[in-house]
Design a protein around this nucleic acid. Structure first.
Lengths: 145, 145
DNA sequence: TTTGACTCCGTAGTCAGGTACGGAAGTAAG
DNA sequence: CTTACTTCCGTACCTGACTACGGAGTCAAA
């Protein structure tokens, strides 16, 4: 079923996009995915574009965009608002970089702690516990979009 | 008020830790912050350790740990069992490293997108929008603890 | 034609992480 | 001593992103 069949029900769409029917409906309610007209009989049909759009949403989400931001991104979809899209992405990039920096600090600290803990021959005094409060108190301020 | 005054009310604590009274109470309900005994009169008093703990929670959270995980991290404080603490920390370290790897991918993707977007001289085709539909469809699945 | 799976749609529930409300009691300044 | 601000505590509410439920209609195979 990896083949391109250009007319599917919502269940098939869900499978194709590796998500759930209820999630798609939820995106429809949020205006992120359009609700196609009903064919005769009352069953709505979806095409490849719908699959692509779900991929888009998933990708953007994976990059750290909230559904609201995904909505903004989708408004720029026609490709004529490149600048705006870029600015949005730049903000996110800054955020991601700050997160990486923070995690690297955390990594170094934990790594050091584990190392010292492993070498400590005094079972009564865990070096890690001691450090948790003293070393780590100065976190970068939160600056999300 | 940056000076170390070692006895403050919850309101002052909130200001010192740049958070809100209600948030602190919420952390207390979740067992992340201890509830000190009431002094005469019934007003609880907090010290520098409480400030440090709040900073710790905020830092860890910013680094992407859930409050539940923060709780585990904080449990390291209680046990004199260095081994257990170390194992937990090692686990967290792996977690942190996976996070970093994920974020680095994210960084590369965004960076590339922004760059291509900046260089594009065709106002009709935004490279970022385009890639969201095509490139990014294979996001790594969430592999959190 | 009956059975079973799927669809439609609305509403409700879940989980994380808070935020707000409200009344009683403590506390500090004038 | 009054007035205004805090604190305390319990409970309720909120946002984001789903997830579940239920009843009615649709469809395809046996």
């Amino acid at each position: 079923m990896t083949t391109s069949q250009t007319s599917m029900t919502i269940g098939t769409l869900a499978k194709m996009a590796d998500t759930h029917v209820e999630t798609i409906r939820y995106y429809q309610r949020r205006g992120l995915v359009e609700v196609p007209e009903k064919a005769y009989g009352g069953i709505r049909r979806y095409d490849e574009k719908a699959v692509a759009r779900l991929h888009f949403i998933r990708s953007a989400q994976w990059l750290g965009f909230s559904l609201e931001q995904v909505g903004e991104l989708l408004k720029l979809e026609d490709g004529t608002h490149c600048d705006e899209a870029r600015v949005l992405a730049e903000h996110k990039l800054g955020d991601v970089r700050r997160r990486i920096a923070g995690l690297r600090q955390m990594e170094a600290t934990l790594d050091d702690l584990v190392e010292r803990c492993r070498c400590s021959r005094d079972p009564q005094r865990c070096p890690m516990i001691h450090s948790l409060y003293t070393d780590l108190s100065d976190a970068p301020e939160n600056s999300d979009t």
